[in-house]
Structure formats: structure tokens, C-alpha cells
Amino acid sequence: MDKNEHIDEFESMFKRAEREPFVFTDVPINSIALVTDGTQEEAHAELASLLKFLPRFQSVSTWHVINGEDYSNVGQLLEAINRHPLDLIVTYRHLQEKSLVPQHSLGVYLDVLTQAIPIPVMVLPGTAAEPVSIDCRVCNRVMVIADHISGDNALINYGARMCSNGGLLWLCHIEDDAVFERYMKAIERIPEIESDQARRLIEGQLLNEATNFIETCLAVLRELEPSIHYHSFVARGHHPYEYRALIDRHDVDLLVTNTKDKDQLAMHGMAYTLSVEFSGVAILLL
């Protein structure tokens, strides 16, 4: 082993000993805009349902209801939103698309809201035309889902903020099989790297990082938010399949996921897929 390899070996050992810290923040949600495409009365009825679904929103001091009469194009909606300082937007898929049969998209308005505005967006189940009722549900089962959970304090803090007292919070990390296999194929073509060992070590390291971070988070959350019950899930797999299995298995009320990647203007692929495919579940897009 030469000097460089030896130095690299020890640097790796010390880097592996580094733990990503979790910083708990009680996310401030004081001002929320509810965006609908119905009448003002319908919007207020939806607000009442929302408060039952998310009991933690009862402490919100300011609600801004933007109904279908307040806007007729994207520009007007953005203007209405930008009029107030907001912590969260709550809305539906396919706003103002009653005459269409929406498929495989979020609708023009939600597309813009998730990309052009830095405020988190909560998408209620169903579409604006055919909403899935949340009247009989309480947000007791929240699932935070990511393919890179380590260090993502905001995602976990939002998850904890949304979960009702006595509810369940899942912290899930699914390492993307497709990406992993692509790199493995490249490694298998490099004679200097032993393929089986690389596969085992890289997979182990990726999953360990997520497991360690989740353990750190759980230790903090159990102390600061003791009324919530916590679970975790870390695995490698096919994204949509694994996510669907998790959501179905645990009858999730709210999914919390990241929407924006650094240096990426459009909503990232997996968040888009989740938002379109899992239209029966409420999703918080950060």
C-alpha cells in the first residue's frame, strides 16, 4: 500500500466517523393560503375540513382564502399569493380544469406554484374537480420520504410539525436502485475495482449513512416531541414501487417530500411522479 492509499484509508475512516447532526426546529406556520377554484363558501367549508384533518393548524393565526373568483390565470394567482407573507400554501391538483379530463400532470397552476414560489405547498388528495374527502380523517400517519435523507433537517422538521399528537411519523429513505445499478455497471467495467466488494461496501455505506442520520433524528425527536411515535425504514429499491408499497402498507395520511433540487429549476422527477401517481394521498411538497 503506498502513502496516498494509506492516507486515503485513514481519511475515509475518520470521514465515516462523522455524523450528520440533526437540528430540531419548531417550524413556524402562522400564515397559510388555501387556494381553491370554487366559491368563497366552498372554500370556507374546505378550510373547516382541513382544520379537522390537521389539528395542528388550529393554532395558525392568519388564513388567506383564495377562491376561484380571485384569479383566472397564473399571473393573477401569483399576484394574489405574493400579496401576503405566507408560510404554507394548501391547494388541489388541476385547479380551474373542470372541463378537462386531467391525466398524468398536476395542472398548470400547481406546476407553477411548485416551481416559481419558494413556499412549501400542501396538495390535498384528489383533484379540484373531484377532491377525495378528508372529513373523516385526521393526519395521524405522516411519512417523510427521501432518496437522500442525511442532513435534510427541514424535511424531518416539517414531518414532525404536521403529525398530530399521538400520531405516527415514519422517516423513510429509499436508495434509488436505478442510479445505484448504473454506477455498479460502470464499476464492473473497471478492472482495478473488485466489483462484488464495491457493490457490498457502497450499498452498506449508503444505507448506513441514512440509518445513522435517522437514528440521530429519532434520538432528538423522542426527547423534544415525545407525544409522537416514530418508525424508520431504510432500503434500496425501485422508487415508485417501494413508495407505493410503503404508503399502502401503512395507510399514510400525509406524505412529506422534497420538490426542488439544487441547481434545478423544474420540480425534480421523483417528487413529480409521487404527486401525480399518489393522488389519493395528501402530499407536502417542500
Binding site: 475512516m13 475518520f14 465515516r16 466517523a17 462523522e18 455524523r19 450528520e20 447532526p21 445513522n212
Partner: peptide, 12 residues
């Protein structure tokens, strides 16, 4: 202190 406490001496 917060940063160095992030090291886990038992890792190796």
C-alpha cells in the same frame, strides 16, 4: 462543540 460532537469514536 456541536460539530466535533458529531464524530462517533466507536465507528471504527
Amino acid at each position: 462543540k456541536q460539530l466535533v460532537d458529531g464524530f462517533d469514536e466507536n465507528e471504527s
